[in-house]
Write a protein that binds this DNA or RNA. Structure first.
Lengths: 148, 148
DNA sequence: CTAAGTGCAAATTTTTTGCTTCTGC
DNA sequence: GCAGAAGCAAAAAATTTGCACTTAG
């Protein structure tokens, strides 16, 4: 735990970013739990120790920590909900740059056997797989509208 | 395309749901594209043919179609953004009922080789894998707060 | 004919931003 | 001391809801 905080303070120094009380406490809160909380939950908890902290500081800090690679955001890459006429099980390739989503089929699904450690957590009824990268269009420098 | 619409109308009949003009047009729009559009995009397109349609009808219809299993929502299962202190590559098990997210490691990542058809789409730099199901707690009927 | 669905406007929910004051380095 | 950060309030963005009117079956 304190190792993570120390590493963060170090990274701040290197990157010329301020390691404020708020930031270290937010990180502490996240490191302290296994729960994958949302911003509001972190806010509620940190507020017990820093009553004057504001929710937007929590949002800003989470984004900073994410950008620094200290924490991660759980979930898929798009903000707005997007829909697929294809309701059959399949996977997606998502371009980080233009947001294009492309369906693909693969036997990963069928071949995939749930690891024992996961089987102990619960019953798995479906698998969501998203490959992320850059599509050919974006690689070739084509300027397509960002579909985000 | 028309097969999909016919199937939908049929499903409506069976389920006692009205197959309205708005609904069939929204479905047509989604079936017609490979783009995985968001609600607003579908709204803009359908509006060209049904100028008086409202955005909330689009949202309601998309939810209906999803519930009927006619279309699918792309992305992970949670609405609010959730954060993970663990920034190393790993996977998640998500309980459909209580929303609990549990980290796990598996060699799926390392072993995973991008299918040729995907390699042609672009360069993949990361893999997001989410297993969905029901956790032990929820299976045993324990009432835990929905973390959503 | 009547329950279900639509449109409208307004509300909610989640996240972001502009600006002033404050503080780590 | 000063650039970067926090707090506040307000806005923005995405999605949902209440209600009166309309329409599919």
């Amino acid at each position: 735990m304190e190792r993570r905080v120390a590493e963060f303070i170090d990274a701040c120094r290197r990157q010329g970013v301020k390691a404020t009380h708020q930031r270290t406490e937010i990180l502490r809160e996240l490191v302290a739990t296994q729960e994958h909380p949302d911003a509001e939950t972190i806010y509620d908890r940190v507020r017990q120790r820093i009553p004057a902290i504001s929710l937007d500081t929590v949002y800003r800090t989470l984004r900073l920590l994410e950008d620094m690679g200290v924490i991660a955001r759980v979930g898929s890459m798009h903000y707005r909900t997007r829909f697929d006429a294809n309701a059959d099980p399949h996977h997606h390739f998502v371009c980080r740059e233009c947001g294009t989503i492309i369906d693909f089929y693969s036997d990963v699904l069928g071949r995939f056997s749930v690891p024992r450690e996961v089987a102990e957590l619960g019953d798995v009824d479906s698998v969501y797989l998203e490959l992320r990268g850059h599509c050919r269009m974006c690689q070739s420098g084509a300027k397509n509208r960002k579909m985000r």
